[in-house]
Computed example of a mutant assay.
Amino acid sequence: MVTDRAVEARGPRASRTRAVLAPLAVALAAGAATAFVGLVDPNEPGHYPTCPFLALTGLYCPGCGGLRAVHALVHGDPVTALGLNPFVVVLIPVAVLLWGRWALRSWQGRRFAGKGMHPAYVWTFLGLMIVFWIVRNVPFGEFLAP
């Protein structure tokens, strides 16, 4: 097992390479998942499991339509993606920006363990998600349903 001191003794390049392994692994996993959703159409029945919340309650969760939205984005159709799940479509660039910040901080040797996000942003996100969840399930918010 290689310790942090052993890696640092090899030089800053080895330490930097090790530091960016986690962000790179997340990028590879997200890229593979996106490619899979792009190749395997979620509009075809039987390819993906049904949303458990939708199956139990008959109501849409904040993620319902998200796979189909990602599929539409992969195929260059942002209008359809916005119609399926605007919350997911808006969150994708936010997730990319947060990932970029994490990767940059890792490359610079700075930690990004939970302290990089102000709690107000987290609470705002949760509040918006709950409002979206509720509004898409009431009659006047029907346009937000997938």
Rank of each mutant, 00 (worst) to 15 (best):
residue 3 T to N: 04
residue 4 D to Y: 11
residue 7 V to A: 02
residue 8 E to A: 15
residue 10 R to Q: 13
residue 13 R to E: 13
residue 13 R to T: 14
residue 15 S to T: 13
residue 19 A to W: 02
residue 26 V to E: 00
residue 28 L to T: 11
residue 28 L to Y: 01
residue 28 L to S: 09
residue 34 T to R: 00
residue 34 T to C: 01
residue 38 G to K: 00
residue 43 N to E: 12
residue 44 E to Y: 15
residue 45 P to K: 10
residue 45 P to L: 10
residue 46 G to D: 09
residue 58 G to D: 02
residue 58 G to E: 00
residue 60 Y to T: 06
residue 60 Y to E: 12
residue 66 G to V: 11
residue 66 G to T: 09
residue 66 G to D: 09
residue 69 A to T: 05
residue 74 V to G: 00
residue 76 G to H: 02
residue 76 G to V: 07
residue 77 D to Q: 15
residue 77 D to R: 14
residue 78 P to V: 08
residue 80 T to V: 13
residue 80 T to C: 08
residue 81 A to G: 10
residue 81 A to L: 14
residue 82 L to M: 15
residue 83 G to Q: 07
residue 85 N to V: 05
residue 85 N to D: 05
residue 87 F to V: 08
residue 87 F to W: 12
residue 88 V to S: 01
residue 90 V to C: 12
residue 93 P to R: 05
residue 96 V to S: 10
residue 97 L to G: 13
residue 99 W to Q: 12
residue 99 W to T: 04
residue 101 R to N: 12
residue 101 R to W: 15
residue 106 S to N: 08
residue 106 S to W: 09
residue 107 W to L: 08
residue 108 Q to R: 14
residue 109 G to Y: 11
residue 112 F to Q: 04
residue 114 G to V: 07
residue 114 G to P: 04
residue 117 M to H: 09
residue 122 V to S: 06
residue 125 F to M: 07
residue 127 G to F: 10
residue 127 G to N: 04
residue 128 L to T: 00
residue 130 I to R: 01
residue 132 F to P: 00
residue 135 V to N: 04
residue 136 R to Q: 15
residue 144 L to A: 07
residue 146 P to L: 11
